[in-house]
């Protein structure tokens, strides 16, 4: 098992002929991901690392069975790419691109909700089910197959936490990057529900940060979960009113503070680590 992604998931790469698309297609293939097609308008008929390239998503789906699409497309065209994939009936989208306009993200997510499409991102490293498959830009080396689900807003911070887990011998079932933007597809709760239902996942690590109320909302759901949750949050020392890199990481009008998130998660029964390397210790204690 694992959530969303497994060794049989057939993957399309939108923007496969660009620098990022080519590089990460190679990385994903090396990891064992089943990349069955790429899309790049006007470049149909070419191959990238042996993967056939089509002119449109429609053309790709008429030739291959596709379960998920990963989008390596410039920000201003992401909405087009996402709509194209949804119209072609693809059920899971992973949007790697950062700097997607807020209104475009809202439109993508609204359509996805209507169509029942799952969206990972935008502004995410993607999703990986270690040892099975990955869709995204995460390094191949730090993950270890296992029984802990990881869900995070931030990329490199998740790598930090995951590598600490792997070093401690604690493997991961699936690691999901929600994305650092204000509007993203899957939220903590969506992914927590999937981990709760996944027989392979025995515990969940939640990596959050200041800003918004996604962690507080997650805490409400964690209260009723049967599986243990360990959390780590970034931004304890961030000043209010400043965006800390991520569009969503800002304490505004007294909301989205570190303290409020820690209190909500602790009250919900989650174990909140105050240093990244404490996460693996806490996880070892609860599984």
């Amino acid at each position: 098992m694992a959530i969303i992604l497994n060794q049989n998931t057939k993957i399309l790469v939108q923007g496969i002929t660009g620098n990022q698309g080519q590089f990460h297609t190679a990385q994903m293939l090396t990891y064992g991901s089943k990349i069955v097609a790429g899309v790049s308008p006007g470049k149909g008929g070419q191959h990238v690392h042996g993967v056939p390239v089509y002119n449109s998503v429609e053309e790709a789906v008429s030739n291959e069975k596709i379960d998920a699409s990963v989008i390596f497309i410039p920000a201003k065209l992401v909405k087009e790419a996402a709509f194209e994939a949804m119209e072609a009936g693809i059920e899971t989208l992973v949007i790697i691109t950062e700097h997607v306009p807020l209104h475009d993200a809202m439109e993508i997510v609204a359509l996805a909700q209507k169509e029942g499409v799952g969206i990972v991102g935008p502004n995410t490293f993607g999703i990986i089910s270690p040892g099975k498959s990955k869709i995204g830009i995460m390094p191949n080396t730090i993950f270890l197959p296992g029984e802990v689900g990881v869900v995070a807003r931030s990329g490199t911070l998740s790598y930090e936490i995951v590598s600490q887990l792997s070093k401690a011998g604690i493997g991961q079932s699936t690691v999901v990057g929600l994305g650092g933007d204000r509007i993203v597809g899957f939220s903590f709760v969506d992914i927590l529900k999937k981990f709760e239902a996944d027989p392979e996942s025995k515990a969940v690590v939640l990596v959050g940060e200041i800003g918004g109320n996604a962690e507080e909302t997650a805490a409400e759901y964690i209260k009723g979960m049967s599986k243990p949750v360990v959390a780590f949050l970034a931004g304890k020392s961030a000043p209010p009113g400043k965006r800390m890199g991520h569009a969503g990481a800002i304490i505004e009008r007294g909301k989205g503070t570190f303290q409020s998130k820690v209190e909500a998660l602790t009250a919900a029964g989650a174990h909140v680590a105050s240093l990244p390397w404490e996460v693996s210790k806490f996880v070892a204690e609860v599984i």
């Binding site: 995070a152 490199t156 911070l157 790598y159 990596v207 200041i210 890199g245 991520h246």
Partner: peptide
Amino acid sequence: GAGITMATIDIIK
């Protein structure tokens, strides 16, 4: 990375 930068600042503190 934004998250790791925030975490680094927290660890410094």
